[in-house]
C-alpha cells in the first residue's frame, strides 16, 4: 500500500470524525450568522466577539491537554477571579503594573501547582480536587478584595486590551491568543510531550511502562493551566478595567463545554486542538448571535448546557454504533485465541 494512499485515507477519516464535523459546523454557523443576524458582521461586533471568546479560548488550551490525559481542571475560573482580585489589591497598594502582571501569571501557576500536588502526590481525583479549589480560590478572592472593585488601571493598558490593530477590526489581544494557540497545538500534536499526553490518557499504565513520567506530566499541565488562567485574569481585569472577586464566575462551564464540543473525549485519550478551537468559535458565534437577537443570559446558559450534553452524548453514541458494527463483523470471523488456556 502506497504512502499517498495512506495519507488520503487518513484525511478522509479525519473529515468524517467529530472534530472535522465541528470545524465544518463552526464555519457554517459563522456564515449563517453573518448573513442572517443583523449587526453580526460589523467590525465592532467582530472585535467584541473576539474579546468575549478570549478568556474561554485561553483557558480551553491547557484544559484540552488536561482532559486528554484523563483529568480535569474545574478551578480555572476561580483562579482567574483570585488573580483579578490580587491584581486589584496590589494595584491599590501602589505596585507598578509592569511588576503586577508577571506576578499574577506566577500566582496562577502556583495555584495550578496546588491542584497538581493534590492530584499527583496525594493521588486524589482531579474532579474532586478542582471542585474544592474552585470554591477555595473564589473564597480567597473575596477575602482579598471583598465586595469592592478596583477600577483605575492605567489607560495605556486597558485601551491596548480593548483596542484593535491599526485601523483593522482585529483586536490586539488576538495576537497573543493566536500565539498561545499555536504553541499549544504544536505541543499537543507534534512534540514528545503531546505523544505522552495521549498515551497517558488512553492507557496510563502502558504509558508508565513506556517511560512516560505521567505524574510529572500531569503536574506541569496543572501548572500551565493555572498560569494561563492567571494571564486570563489579567486580561479580563484590564478589558473591563475592573478587578473584582467575582470576575469570570461560572466560566469553567463554558470552557469545558467548548473543549468537549471540540471532540475531546471526557474519558481522555482523544481530541484535537483544531477541533477545540472550532468548538470555542462555535460557542462564541452562537452566544454572540443569540445576544444580538436579544436572547437573555439565562437562555444563553441553557444553550451552553445543552451543547455540553450533546457534545458528550453524540460522539459516544456514534462510537457505540461503530463498535457494535465492528463486533458483528468480528463474530463472523474467527477470533485469535490464546495458545495456552488460562493458568489455574
Amino acid at each position: 500500500m502506497s504512502g499517498s494512499e495512506n495519507r488520503l485515507r487518513g484525511s478522509f477519516t479525519r473529515l468524517a470524525s467529530w472534530d472535522g464535523a465541528v470545524i465544518l459546523v463552526a464555519v457554517v454557523a459563522l456564515v449563517v450568522a453573518a448573513a442572517a443576524v443583523d449587526g453580526f458582521g460589523t467590525s465592532n461586533n467582530v472585535t467584541f466577539m473576539v474579546l468575549d471568546l478570549l478568556p474561554i479560548a485561553l483557558l480551553a488550551l491547557p484544559m484540552t491537554l488536561i482532559i486528554v490525559t484523563g483529568e480535569i481542571d474545574l478551578s480555572v475560573a476561580s483562579t482567574l477571579g483570585l488573580t483579578s482580585a490580587v491584581m486589584g489589591s496590589l494595584w491599590n497598594s501602589g505596585m507598578a503594573i509592569e511588576t503586577i502582571i508577571p506576578l499574577c501569571v506566577l500566582l496562577g501557576a502556583v495555584l495550578g501547582a496546588v491542584n497538581g500536588v493534590f492530584v499527583t502526590v496525594f493521588r486524589l481525583p482531579s474532579l474532586a480536587v478542582t471542585i474544592g479549589t474552585l470554591a477555595l480560590f473564589r473564597g480567597l478572592a473575596l477575602v482579598v478584595l471583598g465586595e469592592s472593585a478596583v477600577a483605575d488601571f492605567p489607560v495605556v493598558f486597558t485601551t491596548w486590551v480593548t483596542g484593535t490593530v491599526a485601523d483593522t477590526a482585529i483586536p490586539n489581544v488576538l495576537l497573543p491568543l493566536l500565539l498561545l494557540a499555536a504553541v499549544f497545538t504544536v505541543v499537543l500534536h507534534a512534540t514528545p510531550v503531546g505523544r505522552a499526553v495521549f498515551a497517558a490518557g488512553a492507557g496510563e499504565q502502558a504509558a508508565r511502562f513506556s517511560g512516560v513520567r505521567v505524574d510529572r506530566l500531569k503536574f506541569w499541565l496543572f501548572v500551565a493551566s493555572g498560569a494561563v488562567a492567571g494571564l486570563a485574569g489579567v486580561l479580563w481585569t484590564l478589558r473591563y478595567s475592573s478587578a473584582r472577586a467575582d470576575n469570570g464566575l461560572g466560566l469553567e462551564l463554558a470552557v469545558v463545554a467548548a473543549v468537549l464540543l471540540g471532540g475531546v473525549s471526557i474519558f481522555g485519550g482523544r481530541g484535537t486542538m483544531p477541533g477545540v478551537l472550532a468548538g470555542v468559535l462555535l460557542l462564541a458565534t452562537l452566544q454572540n448571535a443569540l445576544r444580538l437577537e436579544d436572547v437573555t443570559n439565562e437562555a444563553l446558559n441553557i444553550v451552553t448546557g445543552a451543547l455540553l450534553i450533546v457534545s458528550v452524548l453524540l460522539p459516544n453514541i456514534s462510537r457505540s454504533v461503530r463498535t457494535a458494527a465492528q463486533r458483528r463483523r468480528l463474530r463472523r470471523t474467527p477470533i485469535p485465541q490464546p495458545a495456552t488456556p488460562p493458568a489455574p
Partner: peptide, 23 residues
C-alpha cells in the same frame, strides 16, 4: 494494560519510548 496503549496507533505505540530521540 502494560505493553500497549490499545487505542493508539501502531506507529505511536512503537515510537512512544523514543519520541524524545526522534524529535
Amino acid at each position: 494494560q502494560q505493553g500497549l496503549v490499545m487505542d493508539l496507533s501502531i506507529q505511536r505505540n512503537v515510537t512512544l519510548p523514543r519520541a524524545g530521540a526522534l524529535a
